[in-house]
Computed example of a mutant assay.
Amino acid sequence: MTNDTARTFVDGTTIRPIRPDESDAESAVIVGAFAAGPYGHLPKSAERAAFEADTAGRGADGAVLVAVGADGAVVGTASVLRAGSRYSRVARPGEAEVRLISVDPSAQGAGLGAALTRASLEAALDWGASALVLDTGSRNTRAQALYERLGFVRDPGRDAVVGAGVESVVYRFPLQPRDDVVVRLMRADEADAVAALVEHAYAADFELNAGYRADIVAVAERAREHRVWVAVDAMTGELLGTASTPRAGETMSPVARDGELDFRFLGVAPGARRRGIGEALVQHVLLLARIRGLERVVLNTGPDMLAAQRLYGRLGFSRLHEREFTFVRPDGSSFQMLAYGRDARLAA
C-alpha cells in the first residue's frame, strides 16, 4: 500500500498509511488492544513497551497502517515490516512481516482486524514480497481463526517462546507463485520501459490506431490513478511483463461491477514469451482479488487477441456475453469487444 493509497471500510472507516500527528493515538490503540487481549494480565517488558511506542521506527522498517473512523479517530493499526529490519521477528529474506495488528476495544467485532490484515497483505504484495508472515500467541485463538479464514497457513517450524508464559505460533501467506519471477508495483523510473513493452506486445497482435496507442503508452499517468504491476526476473531484475488494476474500491473499465476486480493492459515482453509470464500476471490479479475479498475477476479483450483468449480459457475464465459491446473505430469500422470473467475464490 503506497503513501497515496487508502481503502474505505464498510462503516466509513478508512485504512491508510499513518500521518505524523497520529503516532501517539496509534500507540494508544496498541496499548489498549493488548490490555484487552488474552495476554493483558501479564507484565509488559520495557523492550515491548518501547517497541509499541516507536511508531516512527516501525515506519522506517516498512509501513504503519491505521484505521481511521469517520470522526478522524485512530481505531486500528498494523505494522508491515521488511525482513531483516530492526523490528522484524520471524520473516526470512524476501518476506514481509506484519506485527501489532490492533483494534481499539470499542471498535472490535466489526471486521477491522480482517480489513487491516488484508491491507497488510496488499502492502507486502506492492513490495514484491514472497510471503507475508506473522506470529501470535498460542492463546490468541480468535486471531488464529481470523488468519486461517483469510488463507494464512501455519508454519510450525518457526514457532518459539517469546516471553514468560507466551508461546508464539507462526502463520504464512504466500504471495509469489513462482521462485524465478517477482510481481510487484512498477517503480516510477520504469514507466518508459513498461510503456515500450506493452506497446510492442499489443502491436504484435493487431494494428493500433493513434488513440489506442496513446492510451496504451500512458503508463506514468495510469500509475497515478491505478496500480501498474510488473513481472521481473527474480535473478536479473529484467522486465518481463505488466498488467494494470484499479485501486481498492475502484474500477478501470465499465465491465466491472460491485464485488469484482477488472484489469487491463496485460503485456509480455517479446523475449519473455513462452515463459508463462502472462499466466503469472493473471494469477497475481486473481490473488489480489482474493486479498481484497472480491468475488470475481473480469476483463475486456479484442477479437484479435487470440493468445490472450487462449490464456484466459486455460485459466478458467468464461465469456460474459451480456457484457460485450460493439466498439466503433474513428474510421467508422467496428468490432465486438469480448468480455471474460472467473470466480476469484477458486485457486489460480
Rank of each mutant, 00 (worst) to 15 (best):
E207W: 02
E199G: 04
V230G: 08
D215G: 04
V232R: 15
D258A: 15
R187H: 14
E199D: 11
R224Y: 03
G237Y: 10
V230Y: 02
D189G: 09
A196E: 13
L197S: 08
G267P: 00
T251Q: 05
L281R: 03
F263L: 04
D205V: 13
A231T: 13
A201Y: 07
V183K: 03
D262N: 00
R273Q: 12
V232K: 14
M235V: 15
E207I: 12
F265L: 15
R273I: 08
V268T: 12
A272T: 07
V228Q: 02
M252K: 05
E221V: 05
V255F: 11
A256E: 06
P246I: 01
V217C: 08
A210I: 04
V282I: 08
L197K: 11
D189E: 09
R273H: 07
G211Q: 15
G276A: 02
D189V: 13
H200M: 15
A280H: 05
A269N: 06
E190Q: 14
E190Y: 04
H226P: 12
E199L: 13
V268L: 01
E190W: 05
A272Y: 02
V182I: 15
R273C: 09
V194R: 08
A193Y: 10
E279L: 03
A204F: 05
R274I: 04
I216R: 01
G271P: 00
W229I: 11
G249Q: 09
P254K: 12
G267I: 05
A248K: 01
G241R: 07
F206S: 11
W229H: 12
E221I: 00
F263S: 03
R187F: 06
Y202C: 06
R187V: 01
G259F: 00
E225T: 12
S244N: 15
F263T: 01
R264S: 10
R184S: 04
H226C: 11
R224K: 14
A243K: 05
G271T: 04
L208W: 06
G276E: 08
L185C: 15
E279K: 11
R274P: 01
N209T: 02
A191L: 03
E190T: 07
A201Q: 05
A269F: 08
G278F: 01
G237L: 14
R247V: 10
V268Q: 00
A201N: 08
P270Y: 06
L240E: 04
V219A: 08
G267N: 02
F265K: 13
A195I: 05
D215L: 06
A269Q: 10
E260G: 05
